[in-house]
Write a protein that binds this DNA or RNA. Structure first.
Lengths: 222, 222
DNA sequence: TGCAAAACATGACATCCGTCATGTTTTAAA
DNA sequence: TTTAAAACATGACGGATGTCATGTTTTGCA
């Protein structure tokens, strides 16, 4: 709880009030925190685990927009205003714990504390930059470059250093990766086979290790 | 000036102070408001004209992330925090007028006025949703669907109703469209030729008319 | 008005990637 | 430990789209 920036901004009575408004909810694999089109009721913070944000198109094809890690905020944005509905689906990758508060309490917090509001502005700004960078990569790069960029990004942000390389801490199937880089499972399998053959990566979903992040970086920006 | 939401939030002395901090700058075609990698100095608002936000990849290929119209804010996000640099380039499409204020004055405004901060949060949230929707479309749809979606979007947001259909008010070449939907100029020319043949659109850059927005909508979600 | 530059157009061809099919390996739960 | 399901793997094939080349039309400026 101490590692969530937004919650450390307030102090004294304001902080107590805030913590009092927060409730914890737990979800497991296969459940949904909310679905695209649902009404927006709460503001959320990831406490433990990983949550993926997904959108679908009319054919039922899925696209993963973002993996939320502990400390990440969601549904803190416009969806929460003027009765709009969730623009995407939030689902846990394994067991997760979510802190949430009512929209009303959230807006009151933002009104009372300029620091909290600035923190949210900063967070949303970072998310916007990320989303635009993602759009750029989808628009301009080939599938192998996008996949290499994903591995570099996950390795740098969440990777755990080991003897053989950098291990990714979350379970991540080829299908998950395909949804994240905007391609098909088969294409990811083929590219990962090539990467494995070239000793850039090893392992599969439960134990994925990046063995040569520098060469992956080079592929990402070829 | 009266149609910029953010500027109408403050009143009395606060509003006077704000207006005093704003300076106007004009730019013409071929100039840059700022470039990718430049240090962030100001917070900006579009007053008149259209500004495009662009990113490039190492090969020099360009991708247009967003067309900013009057009232749009930019560089209101994380870039302005902790001395980061501009993640993209802002360039005018023709003559534009920009209002800007120093980062310092911007942050002071946000601290003094919770309403202003909430307005920025709301704006950033909308921009984030837009960017994520764009990423989804790039990830999942074919080039003709993306182009049809672009035409529908521009027609709905900025189009001017005419006898023959909906005219787009800004100059928009095939190359501009290609950069907006993540494809090449040749591909856009081919698809637009098909659309023209099917009486869905007519005209070129200076005078582009959407003749059948419903069928374009259908193509976008086929 | 004339002319160079920009925009539009079209063909040929290569390649990336999606789709479908089939088979093997690994995982997770009974 | 067994076993069904999920994940991984690979081939064949076709379609969408990028690339390069060439030519025409339109635009904007001198």
């Amino acid at each position: 709880l101490a590692q969530i920036p937004l919650l450390n901004i307030l102090s004294g009575q304001d902080r107590q009030r805030l913590l009092h408004e927060l409730t914890e909810a737990r979800y497991g694999k296969g459940e949904f925190i909310f679905r695209e089109g649902d009404p927006t009721e709460y503001f959320h913070i990831v406490k433990e685990g990983t949550v993926k944000c997904v959108k679908s198109n009319p054919d039922g094809k899925e696209c993963t927009l973002k993996m939320l890690m502990p400390g990440d905020l969601f549904c803190c944005d416009a969806a929460a205003f003027d009765g709009a509905r969730h623009p995407g689906t939030a689902q846990p990758m394994g067991d997760v714990s979510i802190l949430r508060m009512s929209k009303k309490a959230y807006f009151e917090m933002l009104r009372r504390s300029p620091d909290a509001a600035l923190e949210v502005i900063k967070y949303l700004g970072n998310r916007l930059n990320e989303a635009q960078e993602k759009a750029k990569v989808l628009a301009l790069e080939r599938a192998d470059q996008r996949l290499a960029a994903l591995l570099v990004d996950l390795g740098t942000r969440n990777g755990i250093k080991e003897a053989q390389g950098i291990r990714l801490p979350m379970r991540l199937t080829r299908e998950d990766m395909a949804n994240m880089v905007g391609t098909t499972t088969e294409t990811v399998i083929r590219i990962m086979s090539r990467f494995k053959h070239d000793n850039l990566v090893s392992g599969t979903a439960n134990r994925l290790v990046i063995r040569n992040i520098d060469r992956l970086k080079a592929i990402a920006s070829t």
